[in-house]
Design a binder for these strands. Structure first.
Length: 601
RNA sequence: GCCACCGUAGCUCAAUGGUAGAGCAAUCGCUUCGUAAGCGAUAGGUUAUGGGUUCGAUUCCCAUCGGUGGCUCCA
């Protein structure tokens, strides 16, 4: 643990992966006539590397096998990696058949754009790395020779489409993903980890645990919540509403439909129309299904005159929204088209901003403690100057001001965050909570957004203490995300083993033989009367089978009742950990379960 | 939306250019059992949908729908 921390970019693993990418590019190029394969970029990434190609035909899985085989041959020959620094002119002359390389060189020449088209601090030197017959424009670093790549610790994973420079208006290239490690055992461990992650995937567990389903005739991205999912939703809403009540929120309800004019006023239409279901025409008026609740809440704020004495006004709603996410963007419960948001809008004065904003951050932390969520990053998402007037409201002064307000609030509160430009909402900066799905995709779970723009468009005002009209700031917040994403996340977070308070079925009673059924039903009635979610497994199967099924459904308590229990008025609990407790009276069990629920354990 | 791959019973999977089979689940019997699968029987499929090639298609081709891995985009 006292080992010096080597930055990934400086590590041997990074060099290995970077070198493997070059070796792969050589192997791919050799599949085609000279100059036919256009090579783009091929960097190391978190778990491996990729390389992007523009090829005369699409690559097949068989190609991948052949490429991998050829890579091992190249590795075996221990070709040294040799670096050469050249001028831009020389560099361009080296790549007559490689338009992507020419574009990269011109970027470097013109004042420093890196391979992703992002500006560099200084004009970099232009260098090549050559091994065997393959030369690539490259900053390095590499291993000394190809033999330093362990041929048993590399694997090509998949072919995917990827746009040149990440822009969907550009050519789509073929990207080959590979993974590379120092030792074969590390590759094996990585592949095993991927398998384990798949078992935790909410799409698999959600089906196994009967939480939700999709139906082709309902439509993609439109989940149907099964009874078990219904329970989880109900528990989440009760928690949210209780905490919001304690935190000074008022619950409101708003329609799912609204006239077009509302979204014209809010300014959402130009920014958001692509993600909205198309309008419907009724008696000459266009209506939209709402993709967000904010404009409705603004209308509730302005439904009566407001005084500074009323502020902050906190309006909360589990609002149902529909967004037309493009088909390829859907992902289980994490990215859907129908969703219920743990939404609220806080209207406050500038003086109240910091306290209100940080109260939301405190809410995040409170929920994270309840759910025992530790792996997340808070991200301050700010604007980008070149997006002003396009992606972002065109008022740089207010962007800079509100971003600084958020920084100040977070710093004063001592809450760590990372700052990432060009991730803001169109109306202001925000603190997003970033989490990762089982298979490693990053998602925004919770969000806390400043809005310095839309209240004005809605003519929202309150009378300040001088009797003048003043426009409030608006904070948009969703600490519990949407039901869909939150539950998708929680399924994976708990691996399906939900804590007792939110577990869809909290206990299954396992009668050993039919003669214990009546006693089992009696116990169940008592537990149900105490508000617990309990089933009796009355099937004619042996208890072993009942235990197995309950175990697979990750039910917290399996309550075995046989002759002894029926005689003594007890139950014999087994936990899903496999632990067996001493026989308890029903009252003692109730006490134990109540305490566990109380503690959100 | 784009690129690639995939689609067989509720679930997990098998098989084949000559109209499909297993295990689990379900149903019905038998069994009444002490902590992860008792035994048997029955039922369940226009092989996602629609075209095409063929004497014949579930298998080959095309389109559509849906899913998966990425890209783009996002709570």
């Amino acid at each position: 643990s006292d080992q010096p921390v080597v930055k990934y970019e400086d590590s041997q693993l990074y060099r290995i992966r970077h070198s493997a990418a070059h070796v792969m590019a050589q192997a791919v190029s050799e599949l085609f006539e000279p100059g036919e394969a256009k090579i783009a970029i091929g960097p190391p990434i978190d778990q491996g590397f990729y390389y992007d190609f523009d090829l005369p035909r699409t690559l097949t899985p068989e190609d991948l096998k052949a490429i991998e085989k050829r890579m091992r041959q190249i590795i075996a020959q221990k070709f040294p990696f040799e670096k050469k620094v050249v001028s831009a002119e020389e560099a361009k002359a080296m790549f007559p058949d490689q338009p992507y390389k020419i574009e990269l060189i011109e970027g470097l020449e013109a004042g420093g754009l890196d391979e992703y088209g992002q500006p560099l601090d200084e004009t970099p030197e232009i260098s090549f790395y050559t091994h065997d017959s393959f030369t690539d424009l490259c900053r390095g670093p590499h291993v000394e020779h190809t033999g330093k790549i362990n041929p048993s610790a590399i694997k090509l994973m998949s072919v995917a489409g990827a746009y040149w420079r990440g822009d969907e208006n550009n050519t789509q290239l073929q990207r080959i993903y590979g993974t590379a490690w120092e030792k074969p055992a590390e590759l094996k461990a990585y592949l095993r980890m991927l398998e384990e992650a798949k078992k935790r995937d909410h799409r698999k567990l959600g089906k196994e645990l009967d939480i939700y389903t999709f139906d082709e005739e309902v439509g993609p991205g439109l989940p149907l919540w099964l009874p078990n999912g219904g329970v989880i939703i109900e528990e989440l809403e009760q928690l949210a509403k209780k905490i919001e009540r304690e935190s000074g929120y008022q619950q409101v309800r708003t329609p799912h439909l609204t006239k077009e004019v509302l979204f014209q006023r809010s300014g959402h239409l130009p920014y958001y129309a692509e993600s909205m279901y198309p309008p419907m025409d009724m008696e000459g008026t266009r209506y939209y299904i709402k993709p967000m609740n904010c404009p409705m809440h603004h209308k509730i704020f302005s439904a009566r005159p407001r005084s500074y004495r009323d502020l902050p006004v906190r309006l909360a709603e589990y609002g149902t929204c529909y967004r037309y996410e493009k088909s390829g963007e859907l992902f289980g419960l994490m990215r859907v088209r129908s969703m219920q948001m743990n939404d609220a809008h806080i209207y406050c004065s500038e003086a109240q901003f910091e306290e209100e904003f940080m109260a939301v951050i405190d809410l995040y932390l409170k929920y994270f403690k309840i759910f025992n969520i530790e792996k997340y990053v808070m991200r301050l998402s700010t604007h980008a100057k070149d997006g002003l007037g396009k992606k972002y409201v065109d008022n740089e002064r207010l962007w800079l001001k509100t971003e600084e307000m958020v920084r100040q609030a977070m710093d004063n509160g001592g809450v760590p965050y990372v700052e990432v430009p060009d991730e803001a909402a169109f109306y202001g900066p925000k603190i997003d909570v970033q989490v990762w799905s089982a298979i490693g995709k990053e998602f925004t779970l919770a969000t806390n957004q400043v809005d310095f723009s839309v209240p004005e468009k809605f003519d929202l005002v309150f009378k300040n203490s001088q009797g003048e009209d003043e426009t409030p700031l608006c904070i948009h917040r969703a600490p519990l995300s949407t039901h869909e994403r939150m539950i998708g996340f929680l399924i994976e977070h708990y691996g399906g083993a939900f804590p007792l308070w939110i577990a869809p079925v909290q206990a299954v009673i396992v009668p050993i033989a039919d003669r214990h059924l009546a006693y089992a039903e009696g116990v169940a009635e008592k537990l149900k009367a105490a508000g617990l979610r309990v089933n009796v497994d009355a099937r004619g199967d042996r208890m072993n089978a009942k235990i197995r099924d309950a175990q697979k459904m990750k039910i917290p308590y399996m309550l075995v009742v046989g002759d002894q229990e029926a005689e003594n008025g007890t139950i014999a609990p087994r936990l899903r950990s496999g632990e067996r407790l001493d026989a308890l009276s029903v009252d003692a069990l109730l006490e134990r379960m109540a305490a566990e629920i109380e503690n959100y354990a």
